Computed example of a mutant assay.
Amino acid sequence: MTATSGRRHLGRQLFRFAVIGVGSTVFSLVLFAVLKTWLSNQPANALALIISTVLNTAANRHFTFDAGGQEGHFGVQVRSLVLLGITWAATALGLAVLDHYHPSAGTGAATLTMAVGSAIATAIRFVLLRKWFAPTPELTAELE
């Protein structure tokens, strides 16, 4: 793979990752806001993140990193639990700080807090997913 094609490939990956990420984040935030009508912040956050992480990982695996098929699918979903942990830690910490300093904060403030935590975790998510789906040296040699 040449440097130019590598940059183009990275650019496509970043674009697809961003589109899926925006959709996943919107889905997670809407789901959080809906769940918040029945649950408190932390359980609503955890449930929304679990559902959106599974869907996000499957979409990125297929569309962003062209790792379709069933081979390795379960292992990737298990590793995505690491991503879930990172995202949950960032959002749960933000919600805990919000609850501590403004216990009567509404759904809008809680949802915004979740969005900020999710944005922080997103950069980490891309780096890890890209590493997990990186082609092996043998496959890279075949593509050249």
Score class of each variant (00 low, 15 high):
Met1Gln: 06
Thr4His: 07
Ser5Gly: 04
Gly6Ala: 14
Arg7Gln: 08
His9Glu: 14
Leu10Asn: 00
Leu14Pro: 01
Leu14Lys: 04
Leu14Arg: 03
Phe15His: 06
Phe15Ala: 13
Arg16Asn: 12
Val22Gly: 11
Val22Arg: 03
Gly23Met: 07
Ser24Tyr: 00
Phe27Val: 01
Ser28His: 13
Leu29Lys: 01
Val30Tyr: 02
Val34Leu: 14
Val34Cys: 00
Leu35Tyr: 08
Thr37Ser: 13
Thr37Tyr: 06
Ser40His: 12
Gln42Lys: 05
Ala44Asp: 01
Ala44Pro: 00
Ala44Met: 02
Asn45Leu: 15
Leu47Thr: 09
Ile50Asp: 04
Ile50Gln: 05
Ile51Val: 15
Ser52Leu: 02
Ser52Ala: 07
Val54Asp: 02
Asn56Lys: 01
Thr57Arg: 00
Thr57Phe: 05
Ala58Asn: 08
His62Arg: 15
Thr64His: 07
Phe65Val: 05
Gln70Pro: 00
Gln70Asn: 11
Glu71Tyr: 03
Gly75Ile: 09
Gln77Ser: 04
Ser80Thr: 04
Val82Tyr: 10
Leu84Pro: 00
Ile86Gly: 07
Thr91Asn: 10
Leu93Ala: 13
Ala96Tyr: 05
Ala96Gly: 02
Leu98Cys: 02
Asp99Asn: 11
Asp99Gln: 11
Tyr101Arg: 11
Ser104Tyr: 12
Ala105Ser: 15
Thr107His: 06
Ala110Leu: 06
Ala110Tyr: 06
Ala110Val: 03
Ala110Met: 12
Thr111Glu: 07
Met114Lys: 11
Ala115Thr: 06
Ala115Arg: 03
Ser118Asp: 11
Ala121Val: 05
Arg125Tyr: 12
Leu129Gln: 13
Leu129Met: 13
Leu129Glu: 14
Arg130His: 13
Trp132Leu: 09
Phe133Leu: 07
Ala134Val: 06
Ala141Trp: 05
Glu142Met: 12
Glu142Gln: 10
Leu143Val: 13
